[in-house]
């Protein structure tokens, strides 16, 4: 390990930060690739919210760990196995339905998590959660609207969304495989799972999308830095400059 994460609170923060960062990087890939100009601009707003959120979380992480590392060190100087984002958010932008489905599944989850973090003993995290929840409420409204547009719109859009949901649902059980770190900081995880399932089932039903079965597995997960192959490529591109010119500052 190049940069170790030493406390449970830091482990919680790094999971949150990495998840928001990697999703932001995926949304950055959509820049100039939106289905029309307005949506392009909207996706950039979403990515900027996520980047800002990730930056605040990394700053808090750096402060908590007290190793004289900056937020950027956590972003640019860790390897694949030292990232702790959920596998869901590293999945590629296969088409616009994937972008929307991934965002929606993330937003529902993030809303529940940050709502619980409002009660955090750490006042900075509680304060940040309040700000973040406003962003998520807007993002969730938009991603849900698009779920309905694609699900109800045309036969093709329905099929594409169904395919994206089928593929992405494989990564949902991981979200709920809470370990002792999560349980220490996130209250009422049972309730969280219930909330998530109710919200998602309801949307999928309205959008005429078949809800795939959630299969719990016993595989190692992102909490141990275990990922899909997509993450490494994303990181090698994202980290290129600081890695290629380690002495430079930007």
């Amino acid at each position: 390990m190049v940069i170790s994460i030493d406390t449970n609170f830091a482990r919680l923060l790094v999971r949150l930060a990495d998840t928001e960062l990697i999703l932001a990087q995926r949304l950055c890939e959509m820049c100039s690739r939106g289905p029309f100009l307005e949506e392009d601009i909207a996706l950039s707003n979403l990515a900027l919210d996520l980047l800002g959120r990730a930056e605040e979380l990394y700053k808090l992480l750096a402060e908590t760990e007290g190793k004289e590392l900056a937020a950027d060190d956590y972003v640019y100087r860790r390897n694949e196995r030292e990232f702790f984002c959920y596998k869901l958010v590293e999945q590629p932008n296969t088409d616009f339905a994937w972008v929307i489905a991934r965002q929606y599944l993330h937003d529902v989850y993030a809303k529940s998590v940050f709502t619980r973090l409002l009660q955090s003993d750490n006042s900075k995290l509680a304060g940040l959660s309040e700000k973040v929840l406003k962003e998520i409420r807007y993002s969730l409204e938009r991603s849900k609207d698009w779920m309905l547009r694609l699900g109800i719109g045309t036969e093709e859009s329905n099929h594409r969304l169904q395919f994206a949901i089928d593929r992405l649902f494989r990564f949902v059980p991981e979200l709920f495989a809470f370990d002792t770190v999560d349980l220490q900081y996130i209250a009422d995880t049972e309730g969280l799972i219930e909330e998530w399932k109710m919200e998602v089932s309801d949307t999928l039903r309205t959008a005429n999308i078949q809800e795939p079965e959630l299969k719990s597995t016993h595989l190692r997960d992102s909490r141990e830095g275990f990922h899909t192959e997509y993450l490494g490529h994303l990181l090698s591109e994202m980290q290129f400059l600081p890695r290629a010119y380690p002495d430079a500052t930007w």
Partner: peptide
């Protein structure tokens, strides 16, 4: 002005632009 396919999208696009 903005483009939008439905009124909800229009108000969101206006906000985002």
């Amino acid at each position: 002005s903005v483009h939008g396919y439905d009124k909800k999208m229009a108000v969101q696009n206006a906000r985002d632009a």
